[in-house]
Design a protein around this nucleic acid. Structure first.
Length: 329
DNA sequence: AAGGTCCTGGGACCATAAGA
DNA sequence: TCTTATGGTCCCAGGACCTT
């Protein structure tokens, strides 16, 4: 059983929805997700627009398990504030797939983040650095609240009460669209987080601060003895928690509270839609995964459902081979 | 030379949850 | 109910670089 069959099904669903013209390449990304994912989600961040704009009721399935709407409301009240049922929560991530169990282990439950951009580069990552894996506990820390894990647990039902549910490592995927407004140039890909995380996140943050320090020393031509510099580096290596970094700070006597936010721009080698990877062509819809999680049986699963999908490999300069499934429109 | 495109840095602004 | 803290999106300007 493929551990991220949820994402594979999502990819297939997206192409089917596009083929049947339920959606177009230029439709809002959110709508594309909803039509592609159907009822496979355990969390949707913008449940309000899903319902109002796209006629998708996130709670639909659970509601139907109750005889009357009132019973559902009574049940949900003690778990999630009624106001939040159809809100736009602005939490991380945009979508979370349901978990499944296979041979006594959790699988699926992947994260999906949306990145939509008018130009050719990927929209910046704001505050949440992209990674390969995240578990529910980390998601709660990032959000500074537990709304996402609470809702996901409700949808995942019995599985959520099993041991290890909150610490199960979930694969992160990114639904990336570039040239969002151009019918002739648009590209859409479901991209494995491995395409973006080539250096562990903690390492990245610490090196940022080191760089800042070094740049200043250079600018002011200050010399610091190597052993002291060594100690500073050691100390800085403890700076890893993005939520601490991002919090606004109270500085004595200051009437403003400065706020550091880490945003990340994608190098073109980390942008599968850049001219680094000409194989990812215009008007194509792709699934791009690290070769290490690729399994042969995927070929069959995918070609059985959509025979026109082609498979090839691209080479990421830093993270090696990635397998691409591609459908061209 | 003119026009297009990409990359980078920066800014405006909005929505929501939690706290007061 | 109002305010605050925080996460998030979108857009723009300028320069580098490429193409015609």
């Amino acid at each position: 059983m493929c551990k991220f069959i949820d994402v594979v099904d999502f990819y297939i669903g997206m192409i089917n929805a596009l083929k049947s013209r339920k959606i177009g390449l230029l439709s809002p990304l959110e709508e594309i997700c909803l039509k592609a994912g159907k009822d496979s989600f355990a969390y949707i961040d913008n449940r309000r627009d899903a319902k109002e704009k796209y006629g998708y009721d996130f709670w639909g399935i659970i509601k139907n398990q109750f005889e009357e709407k009132k019973q559902f409301i009574d049940w949900i009240k003690s778990r999630v504030n009624e106001k939040l049922l159809y809100s736009k929560s602005e939490q991380f991530p945009d979508f979370l797939f349901k978990v499944r169990k296979h041979q006594d282990k959790f699988i699926c439950g992947s994260l999906l983040e949306l990145k939509d951009s008018k130009g050719g580069s990927i929209a910046s990552f704001n505050s949440t650095l992209p990674t390969k894996y995240k578990n529910l506990e980390e998601i709660d820390v990032i959000n500074n609240k537990n709304l996402v894990s609470r809702i996901a647990s409700l949808i995942d039902g019995d599985l959520a009460s099993e041991k290890g549910y909150r610490t199960f490592e979930r694969r992160c995927f990114y639904l990336v669209r570039t040239h969002a407004g151009r019918d002739d140039k648009v590209k859409i890909s479901v991209v494995d987080g491995s395409f973006f995380e080539t250096v562990p996140k903690d390492n990245l943050i610490y090196q940022m601060f080191l760089n800042i320090l070094h740049a200043h020393l250079e600018q002011k031509t200050i010399r610091i003895p190597p052993d002291i510099l060594n100690q500073i580096e050691k100390a800085l290596s403890h700076v890893t928690d993005q939520t601490i970094i991002a919090a606004s700070q109270v500085i004595e006597k200051a009437s403003v509270r400065p706020r550091l936010r880490i945003m990340a721009e994608v190098h073109s080698e980390g942008n599968p839609h850049s001219n680094f990877y000409p194989e990812i062509s215009e008007r194509s819809v792709n699934l791009i995964i690290d070769a290490s999680i690729y399994e042969k049986k995927l070929d069959e699963i995918i070609s059985q459902k959509i025979p026109e999908i082609k498979k090839f490999t691209i080479h990421h300069k830093r993270n090696g081979d990635h397998v691409v499934f591609q459908y061209k429109f």
